[in-house]
Each structure stands twice: as C-alpha cells, then as structure tokens.
Amino acid sequence: MIISSSKPFEEILSMLDDAGKIFVIGCGVCATKLHVGGEPEVEDMCRKLREAGKDVIGGTVTKAACSVKSLDYLLDLDPKIKDADSLLIMSCGSGLSIIASVTDAEVHPATNTDSLGGISCGDVKEEQCVMCGDCIADFFGGICPTARCPKGLLNGPCGGSMDGKCEVDPEKDCVWELIYIKLRDTNRLDLLDRMFEPKEYDA
C-alpha cells in the first residue's frame, strides 16, 4: 500500500489558481483505504473547491489510479473529463503520473506520497519499505531498517535509544529493538553476525 496524506487545502487552491475547468479524480485502492482519495473525500473536495469559487465540472474515483490504461478508460468513468483543463488527482504520485501519461490536461496532486506501507491487524503501518531495489529484509526478520531506522543503519543500533525507543523519534520503537526481538523469538539471532557494506548508489 502506498501511504499518502492530504495536502493543506490552501496549497491545493494555490496550485489551481488558473486551472480553468477542474475535474477531481480519486483512487479506489490505497487512497480510499487511507481516506485521502475515496468517494467521500472526492465529493468533499469538489464541494470545497466550488465554495472557493473554482469551476469544478465533476469528480470520480478510478478502480486504481496507478493502473489507468487509457484516456478512454477515464472517459468511461465520466465523459466530462475530456472537457477539463485541469485534473486534481487524489492518489499517490504513481497514480498521478499514470493519469498524466494518458491526458493532455494539467494534472495537480491533492496528496503527498509519504511511504510504502500496508495494513496489519486493522492498523495502517507506515514506512515499511523505501523501494531501494536491493531487498535484504530477510536478514532482519522481515523488518526493513533502511525504511524504519531514521539513520538507515544496517549493522545494528546507534546506541542512542532509551527504553526501546528511537533516539530521533522517541514516540517510535527503535527498529533494532524490534529486529532483535523478532530474530530472538524465531531462533535466528545468528543473522545479526553478518556485516553489510554501504550501498553503492552510483552503479
């Protein structure tokens, strides 16, 4: 799941300063589950924009914004999309980019894409993965320190945590404490003996 959060309405208004006719498009997957781009949010955004004096000609929610195959698919959802000068996209950046690839209208983001996460036991889990392209999470019990350690440490904790809490963000558990517990409970503490070289980003 892509974790997104809503931009401040004032920022959205400033992006749409000379937007002309506006159509709002949400996403039926991640943005809907996070309540930042489902049907209620799209309807509310249309209402707020109209109250702010914007020319909103409609709104809809795609099944998955990142899987829009063509302009015809969007027009099947609502033919008024072809009349829009600007599209306000209530999805992650991937959804916005895909929609931008099939239309000549201006596209504007209504959300910020924060991280790759998921839902577990009914709770939204943020910052589970940073899509680094070199997954080694198996060595850490399936917990990614690249994504979840603010310092991105791959060879153990920094030493600054207190009572199992992160030095950088004391509201969060130290990810290395969680990794240790996971590996201990699954009899794989030997995995912590491996040392990882710094990643090569210039290859």
Rank of each mutant, 00 (worst) to 15 (best):
M15C: 05
D17Q: 14
K21R: 15
V24G: 08
G26P: 12
G28T: 04
A31S: 15
T32C: 03
K33L: 06
V36P: 03
V36M: 05
E43L: 12
D44P: 01
K48R: 15
L49D: 05
R50Q: 12
D55S: 12
V56R: 07
T60Y: 01
T60W: 00
T60C: 14
V61D: 00
A65H: 00
C66E: 03
S67V: 00
S67E: 00
K69M: 10
K69T: 07
K69N: 12
L71G: 03
D72A: 15
P79H: 06
K80W: 04
K80D: 14
I89D: 09
I89W: 06
M90G: 03
S91N: 05
G93R: 01
S94E: 13
L96R: 13
S97D: 10
T103N: 10
A105W: 09
E106M: 09
E106N: 14
V107M: 05
H108C: 08
A110D: 04
A110H: 08
N112W: 03
N112R: 12
L116W: 11
G118C: 11
K125H: 12
K125T: 10
V130A: 07
M131I: 07
M131W: 02
G141L: 05
I143C: 00
C144N: 07
C144R: 11
T146V: 15
A147W: 00
R148K: 15
K151G: 03
G152N: 11
G156F: 06
G156S: 12
C158Y: 04
C158A: 11
G159Y: 04
G160E: 13
G160Q: 09
S161G: 13
E167R: 01
V168R: 02
P170Y: 06
E171F: 02
W176G: 01
E177N: 11
I179F: 06
I179L: 10
L183P: 01
R184S: 14
D190Q: 08
L191N: 12
L192W: 00
F196Q: 07
P198F: 11
Y201V: 12
D202E: 14
